[in-house]
Every structure is written in structure tokens, then in C-alpha cells.
Design a protein around this nucleic acid. Structure first.
Length: 426
RNA sequence: GCGGUUGUGGCGAAGUGGUUAACGCACCGGAUUGUGGCUCCGGCAUUCGGGGGUUCAAGUCCCCUCAAUCGCCCCA
């Protein structure tokens, strides 16, 4: 082997893709029921999209992006998240000019340069949704309800929805000032990251995981306390709606989240069962993002869910029992000159009628072919030998009972399919 | 980016300086005439992640490197 796959990326082998298909099927279904349509944006964008969209001060932009210069000298970045590209596409194609709100979803790979560990890859996959053009609290509630519905449909339990409101440009300056006043005497004791945050984005000190910082920020003014009436009303309505729909949540006034574009509602879904990387999804409202990227004032909200972490949680909750084995309808075994061509012809005709059929590729012994047939768990095996061919018949063996019957070659397809006619082509 | 642990055939796993690197599973083949699942027999690592060093001698010791894994940071 010359090299393995690069660090932090993984192949998904048949055993896994089978599981992914199940999750993807749920995504397809739930998005249809909630009225979302799919958007597929490129895997890379002009770096600018993320620098301005996600925010220069975020960890993602500062140290986790995959940046490169193409042969034309353009500064490009592999997408670390799905919201900024979606907004870019919204603007480029003027989707905001149509009926609002615009409800989009995406599924695909994202790239972040970090040290790999359980639940953290450099290429990972997200399922995300975005709603543009409505500032209504109903949309906030719907987005969160949908996320929880999604997990529920996959059978996941013991998840926690953390909820907070981090205000808007009207109320945030007041909070920021109060927070800086509160922390001013202790700045020197904060961790180095938080010392920088103190000036640039003091709010993020609230959810710093450093123990000392947590102690120092005990009793600090929370965003909720400084919400303007608009944000407060909005937040209350969101909670009321979630309550009425029976969506349980935990208020967390220190939840801030690492992307700069969030306003008002911020939420995160965590699982206690997948190691240190406990967040399996999160999102929030971003009422200024579209403007920031050069579009018209358009409120928005969305979530992004990590599919690897979802699968990991499912695995830990025993929801991935790989019960489905290889299942074929028929195996055709051959023995002797001229039999393979007949078998091949029959196999193709049967496949065109919808049966899953296999035959041997290497001209192995009948015994070896039977062994293979057994592994495919086929209910029946068609055996075509030289003597049968001479008589114009084939043998059909029922594996479970070892019973065999002889069927004329020219009626075996009708015998197996119930009709000799292939289905109408599409 | 930082710290801990680990790296032997497709997988699991013995082997703690000294002849031809256990074993289990999987896979392939065979057990008198063209037939599966059980059993039996046989095959399957010139090589121990990669590179360098120490030694008469290294899978076993040292260094570097790559990767995996767990944690920190952050987040999905």
C-alpha cells in the first residue's frame, strides 16, 4: 500500500453506507413533510464567503478552514459549514425575490482542520436546514421541533435541547458593556483565549469551558437579562410554542455558540453518550447574515446536524444492529460447456424483470458455487448442467428443503416471475 | 495546535534480544462420479505501520516519522 487515506478522513464501506442510506431516507422524508427543498452548493467557495459569513473572530475561520489558492490565483476555502454558502447561493440566484419564506435543506460533506478524535473528522457530513424571510418565532420553534423530530424518528433518546437567546444589535451593546464592566477587574485571570475575547467578543467568555473562567464569570450578566423588548417577546413566544408542542428543552443562559452570525435564538442538541464531542447538532437565528453578505435585509434561521455523530449516537444506543444481510432472489450455478452463456442470458432477463440474480464469475466447481449461493442466502438456486441443457431443462433447487424440480428451459422465466414479459421500460 | 495510549496476515490476537513469527475467525481448495449449511484435511505474513540507529543477533531496545485512539481547545 502506497498510502492510506489522509488523516481525519474516512471511507464509508458498504456496511456503513447501508446505515447512511437509512438516515438519508429519513432526511428525505422529514424535509418533504416540513416543506423543505434541497439545495446543493459547491464544496468550496471564495474564502471571503466564510470570513465575512461565519466571522473573522471565530475559531472555525481562525484555525480550522481548509484554504487553498487555485491555479488562477483565487483564494478558496473548503466549506466548513453550510449556512454561508446557502446564503451566497440565495443572493446569487435572488431566491429572496420569490415567495417567502424560502425553506432549504442540504446534506453533504464539510471540512474543518482539527485534531481527529471520537466524533470529529476533518471531513464530516452535515444535514442542515435554513429558513429565509421570516422573523416569526413560529419558525424558530418549527426548526427546533423538526430537529428533535428527526432524532426521534431515528429512535434516538436521551438527547437534550439547550436553548438561549443572545439578543440582537439593539440589545447586545448593553449586555456587552455590562459584561465587560463585570469582568474588567478580573481580566488578567482569564485564560489567554478569553483575554482576547474580552475585547473582541466578551459574550463568548460565558461559554468558555475553562474552569477558572467559569468561576470568574459566575454571576456575570447574562444575555437574557439584557434582551430588548422585541427579543424578549420573541424568546417568550418561542418557549411558549415549544411548550405547546411538547418539545422539551433546557434553558442555558451561557450557551453562546461559536459562529458570529447568530442573533436571538441559539440552540444546541447534545448527547451524553458519544464521548467528549457531545454536540450532535445546533443552530440559531441569523437576522443580519444576509445583509452582511451583501443582500437585502432578510431574517433567517437554521440548524446543522453532524451525521457522523448522529450515527455514533445511534450505534451507542444499539440502533444499528446490522440485521440485513445480503439478500438475493436467485443464484444460477452452471456446470459444463455452453452452460455459462445460457445462464448469463437467463440472469440478464430475470434481472430486467426485477429479480436480484447472481452467478459465478470464475468457472468454479459446482460445489464452490453452491457454497457461494448459500452465503447469498438465496431461497433458490437454478442449476444448469450439460445434461440438462441437452434436454432443454434446468433444475431449480429450494435451499431450505433441498428439494429440486426440473423445469423446461423455455418456461423457467415465467415459472420464476409469473410472466414471460419484461416490465414496461420507464 | 497541545497531552496520554497504541500500531504483528482481511479481522481478532500470541510473541517482553537469539533457529523456519502461535492460535482463532474469515477467505480459497479438497474429502472417488455434477450440488450448500456440520465435520475433517490442506492453502493463505520472505515479515511484524514506515525510515534510521544500537547489537554477533530486533517484531522485541533507542530516535524520527506516519496513522489510529482518548482527552484539551473548539465544534458537527
Amino acid at each position: 500500500m502506497i498510502t492510506g487515506a489522509p488523516r481525519g478522513v474516512k471511507d464509508l464501506l458498504p456496511k456503513q453506507t447501508k446505515q447512511w442510506h437509512k438516515v438519508e431516507a429519513v432526511i428525505r422524508q422529514i424535509t418533504r413533510e416540513y416543506g423543505f427543498e434541497e439545495i446543493r452548493t459547491p464544496i468550496f467557495e471564495h474564502s471571503e464567503v466564510f470570513h465575512r459569513g461565519v466571522g473573522e473572530t471565530t475559531d472555525i475561520v481562525q484555525k480550522e478552514t481548509y484554504d487553498f489558492t487555485d491555479r488562477g490565483g483565487r483564494e478558496l476555502t473548503l466549506r466548513p459549514e453550510g449556512t454561508a454558502p446557502t446564503v451566497r447561493a440565495l443572493l446569487e440566484h435572488k431566491l429572496y425575490a420569490g415567495p417567502l419564506p424560502v425553506k432549504l435543506y442540504y446534506v453533504g460533506p464539510m471540512f474543518r482542520f482539527g485534531r481527529p478524535q471520537a466524533g470529529r473528522l476533518r471531513q464530516f457530513h452535515q444535514f442542515g436546514i435554513e429558513v429565509f424571510g421570516s422573523a416569526s418565532a413560529r419558525v424558530d420553534a418549527e426548526v427546533m421541533a423538526m430537529a428533535m423530530d428527526f432524532y426521534g424518528r431515528l429512535g434516538l433518546t436521551d438527547l437534550e435541547l439547550l436553548l438561549n437567546s443572545i439578543g440582537c444589535p439593539t440589545c447586545r451593546p448593553g449586555h456587552r458593556e455590562a459584561l465587560q464592566q463585570f469582568l474588567a477587574p478580573k481580566v488578567g485571570e482569564l485564560c489567554s483565549d478569553c483575554q482576547k475575547r474580552f475585547e473582541k467578543n466578551p459574550m463568548r467568555i460565558l461559554d468558555c469551558k475553562n474552569e477558572r473562567c467559569q468561576e470568574l464569570s459566575q454571576g456575570a450578566p447574562t444575555t437574557v437579562e439584557y434582551l430588548c423588548t422585541d427579543c424578549a417577546d420573541h424568546f417568550n413566544e418561542v418557549k411558549t410554542l415549544l411548550d405547546s408542542a411538547g418539545v422539551t428543552y433546557t434553558l442555558d443562559d451561557r450557551l453562546v455558540r461559536g459562529l458570529d452570525y447568530y442573533t436571538k435564538t441559539a440552540f444546541e442538541i447534545v448527547s451524553r453518550q458519544i464521548g467528549a464531542q457531545s454536540s450532535i447538532g445546533g443552530g440559531g437565528r441569523y437576522d443580519q447574515l444576509v445583509e452582511t453578505l451583501g443582500g437585502p435585509t432578510t431574517p433567517g434561521i437554521g440548524f446543522g446536524l453532524g451525521l457522523e455523530r448522529v450515527l455514533l449516537t445511534m450505534e451507542n444506543q444499539g440502533l444499528l444492529a446490522d440485521d440485513d444481510q445480503e439478500q438475493r432472489d436467485l443464484f444460477i450455478a452452471t456446470a459444463g460447456a455452453g452452460t455459462a452463456a445460457v445462464a448469463f442470458r437467463l440472469m440478464q432477463e430475470l434481472r430486467q424483470r426485477g429479480m436480484t440474480v447472481e452467478m459465478d464469475y470464475q468457472g468454479r466447481s459446482l460445489k464452490a458455487q453452491m457454497k457461494t449461493a448459500d452465503r447469498f442466502h438465496v431461497p433458490r438456486v437454478m442449476i444448469i448442467g450439460e445434461s440438462e441443457l441437452a434436454q432443454g431443462v434446468v433444475v431449480l433447487r429450494t435451499m431450505s428443503t433441498s428439494e429440486q424440480q426440473t423445469v423446461p428451459l423455455d418456461s423457467v422465466i415465467a415459472h420464476l416471475c409469473g410472466t414471460a414479459e419484461p416490465p414496461m421500460s420507464v
